[in-house]
């Protein structure tokens, strides 16, 4: 566990050493605002709730989180620093975990900076703050799941563009597996159990469940195990490259 810390620190600092962090945060906040106020018609709805705001997180994350995750391993591979990293006396899982936590903490910073909208609803009305807290937790967990997928994909290539595109596709499949588009396709012929299983893999289903203000253990376990699974895959993928 001791070796996770320096990796985390280096990785987290590296976001802020380049314009990447600032560009990302500005775009993230700007897009959040644009979606919520213009497309989501936040004011016109006249409801003191952040449901619209959180509703767009799924779609924003779909593109923005792979953009954070794509560099995690692809860049190391491209610049050759992966050889340095893997010949330092730390286990691979510590590097994987340190990098993931750093990127996750970074998305956490971006998410936390959306706090003015929370202040806004509280100024304008009397929202259920419990629901809002739960939604923030859910949103953060969902970002972690997207990130774990992106990090694992990033470990397969030295090309960041490929890492980005493949991550978006895989994240998209996870996102929509609960949507009518997919479910209707299965409903026609598959048994209910299978339909439910496919639907249960959806980020949206679990995120919306948390968004209702109830943090159900099942939803936490879902996101937690998904993150653990993809971090495990990440370790295997990095280790596999040793065989040449």
């Amino acid at each position: 566990m001791k070796s996770v810390c320096p990796i985390f620190k280096r990785e987290f600092a590296s976001y802020f050493a380049t314009p990447l962090a600032y560009v990302f945060i500005v775009i993230f906040l700007f897009a959040m605002g644009a979606f919520t106020f213009y497309i989501g018609r936040f004011y016109e709805m006249g409801v003191a709730s952040l449901e619209v705001f959180f509703g767009y997180h799924v779609w924003l994350y779909l593109f923005l989180v792979p953009a954070i995750g794509m560099r995690l391993w692809a860049e190391e591979r491209k610049s050759g620093t992966i050889e340095l990293l893997l010949t330092l006396p730390i286990p691979i899982w510590a590097s994987v975990l340190g990098k993931f936590l750093a990127a996750w903490a970074f998305t956490g910073v971006a998410l936390a900076l959306t706090f003015p909208i929370w202040l806004t609803v509280n100024y304008l009305g009397d929202p259920d703050n419990g629901v809002i807290v739960a939604s923030y937790v859910g949103s953060f967990l969902m970002a972690g799941a997207y990130l774990a997928i992106s990090a694992a994909v990033s470990a397969t290539t030295s090309n960041q563009v490929i890492a980005f595109v493949v991550s978006v596709v895989i994240c998209f499949l996870f996102t929509i597996s609960g949507a009518p588009l997919v479910i209707d396709f299965f409903k026609a012929w598959a048994p209910i159990a299978l339909v439910d299983t496919v639907a249960s893999f959806s980020f949206m289903t679990h995120f919306q469940a948390i968004g209702r203000g109830v943090i159900d253990l099942r939803d936490l376990v879902y996101f937690g195990s998904l993150i653990a699974l993809f971090l495990g895959i990440n370790v295997v993928l990095v280790d596999m490259k040793k065989a040449g």
Partner: peptide, 8 residues
């Protein structure tokens, strides 16, 4: 390592 890689 060859090429002395480091975090730029």
């Amino acid at each position: 390592p060859e090429g002395a890689p480091a975090y730029g």
